[in-house]
Computed example of a mutant assay.
Amino acid sequence: MLKAVAIKIDDIYIPADRRKERDPARIESFAENIIDEVEVEPIRVRKGKDKNKYVLVRGVNRLEARKELGDETIFAYVVQALQR
Protein backbone atom coordinates (compact mmCIF):
# COMPACT_ATOMS: atom_id res chain seq x y z
CA MET A 1 0.00 0.00 0.00
CA LEU A 2 1.28 3.44 -0.90
CA LYS A 3 2.01 5.90 1.88
CA ALA A 4 1.53 9.62 1.22
CA VAL A 5 4.49 11.85 2.08
CA ALA A 6 4.73 15.64 2.32
CA ILE A 7 6.75 17.17 -0.50
CA LYS A 8 7.72 20.79 -1.14
CA ILE A 9 5.70 22.11 -4.07
CA ASP A 10 8.78 23.91 -5.41
CA ASP A 11 10.49 20.51 -5.77
CA ILE A 12 7.88 19.23 -8.25
CA TYR A 13 8.38 19.60 -12.00
CA ILE A 14 5.25 19.58 -14.18
CA PRO A 15 5.89 18.03 -17.62
CA ALA A 16 4.35 19.75 -20.66
CA ASP A 17 1.79 16.97 -21.23
CA ARG A 18 0.55 17.36 -17.62
CA ARG A 19 0.33 21.17 -18.00
CA LYS A 20 -2.14 20.65 -20.87
CA GLU A 21 -4.49 18.92 -18.41
CA ARG A 22 -5.01 22.07 -16.31
CA ASP A 23 -8.70 22.87 -15.91
CA PRO A 24 -9.54 26.15 -14.12
CA ALA A 25 -12.95 24.85 -12.99
CA ARG A 26 -11.42 21.72 -11.45
CA ILE A 27 -8.66 23.77 -9.81
CA GLU A 28 -11.29 26.01 -8.20
CA SER A 29 -13.32 22.99 -7.09
CA PHE A 30 -10.27 21.34 -5.50
CA ALA A 31 -9.34 24.62 -3.78
CA GLU A 32 -12.85 24.88 -2.31
CA ASN A 33 -12.67 21.27 -1.09
CA ILE A 34 -9.30 21.93 0.54
CA ILE A 35 -10.64 25.04 2.28
CA ASP A 36 -13.69 23.06 3.45
CA GLU A 37 -11.29 20.37 4.71
CA VAL A 38 -12.74 17.73 2.40
CA GLU A 39 -10.09 15.06 1.98
CA VAL A 40 -8.40 15.29 -1.41
CA GLU A 41 -6.48 12.30 -2.79
CA PRO A 42 -2.70 12.80 -2.82
CA ILE A 43 -1.03 13.53 -6.14
CA ARG A 44 1.41 11.04 -7.71
CA VAL A 45 5.03 11.88 -8.41
CA ARG A 46 8.17 9.99 -9.32
CA LYS A 47 11.77 10.75 -8.45
CA GLY A 48 13.47 13.04 -10.93
CA LYS A 49 17.00 12.75 -12.27
CA ASP A 50 18.03 15.00 -9.38
CA LYS A 51 17.02 12.74 -6.48
CA ASN A 52 15.88 15.76 -4.46
CA LYS A 53 13.32 16.69 -7.14
CA TYR A 54 10.12 15.03 -8.32
CA VAL A 55 8.20 14.80 -11.60
CA LEU A 56 4.42 15.04 -11.52
CA VAL A 57 2.73 11.88 -12.78
CA ARG A 58 -0.88 12.64 -11.87
CA GLY A 59 -2.79 15.43 -10.13
CA VAL A 60 -1.96 18.71 -11.86
CA ASN A 61 -5.27 20.33 -10.83
CA ARG A 62 -4.83 19.33 -7.18
CA LEU A 63 -1.26 20.68 -7.28
CA GLU A 64 -2.39 23.96 -8.87
CA ALA A 65 -5.14 24.31 -6.25
CA ARG A 66 -2.57 24.01 -3.47
CA LYS A 67 -0.38 26.60 -5.21
CA GLU A 68 -3.30 29.02 -5.50
CA LEU A 69 -3.99 28.62 -1.78
CA GLY A 70 -0.37 29.51 -1.02
CA ASP A 71 0.60 26.11 0.35
CA GLU A 72 4.29 25.22 0.32
CA THR A 73 3.86 21.45 0.65
CA ILE A 74 1.50 18.80 -0.71
CA PHE A 75 0.94 15.15 0.10
CA ALA A 76 2.00 12.80 -2.66
CA TYR A 77 2.45 9.14 -3.43
CA VAL A 78 5.94 8.49 -4.77
CA VAL A 79 5.62 5.88 -7.54
CA GLN A 80 8.12 4.11 -9.76
CA ALA A 81 8.82 5.40 -13.26
CA LEU A 82 7.56 3.21 -16.07
CA GLN A 83 10.28 1.03 -17.52
CA ARG A 84 10.52 1.13 -21.35
Rank of each mutant, 00 (worst) to 15 (best):
M1C: 13
M1P: 14
L2F: 09
L2I: 15
A4P: 01
V5L: 07
A6K: 13
A6L: 12
I7N: 02
I7E: 02
I9E: 06
I9G: 01
D10K: 02
D10N: 06
D11W: 03
I12D: 03
I14D: 07
P15S: 02
A16Y: 15
A16Q: 13
A16E: 14
A16P: 13
A16T: 15
D17P: 04
D17L: 07
R18V: 09
R19G: 03
K20A: 06
E21W: 05
E21V: 04
R22Q: 09
R22W: 11
D23F: 09
D23L: 10
D23M: 09
P24C: 10
P24Y: 10
A25M: 06
A25E: 07
A25C: 07
R26N: 08
I27M: 01
E28D: 07
E28A: 05
A31D: 05
A31G: 02
A31F: 03
E32F: 09
N33D: 10
N33Q: 09
I34R: 04
I34Q: 08
I35Q: 12
I35G: 12
E37S: 11
E37G: 10
E37M: 11
V38R: 13
E39D: 14
E39V: 14
E39R: 11
V40Y: 07
V40T: 07
E41T: 12
E41P: 10
P42D: 04
P42L: 06
I43H: 00
R44W: 03
R44K: 05
V45S: 00
R46T: 13
K47L: 12
G48K: 11
K49A: 13
K49Y: 12
D50K: 09
K51N: 14
K51C: 14
K53N: 10
V55D: 11
L56C: 02
V57M: 04
R58N: 04
R58W: 04
R58F: 03
G59N: 05
V60C: 00
V60F: 00
V60Y: 00
N61C: 06
N61H: 04
L63T: 00
L63W: 01
E64T: 09
E64R: 07
E64Y: 08
E64V: 09
E64L: 09
A65D: 04
A65G: 04
A65Q: 06
R66M: 03
K67Q: 09
L69V: 03
G70I: 11
G70E: 13
D71S: 08
E72K: 08
F75G: 06
Y77A: 02
Y77C: 02
V78L: 09
V78I: 15
V79C: 08
V79Y: 12
V79H: 12
A81D: 15
A81P: 15
A81Y: 15
L82W: 15
L82G: 08
Q83K: 14
R84E: 15
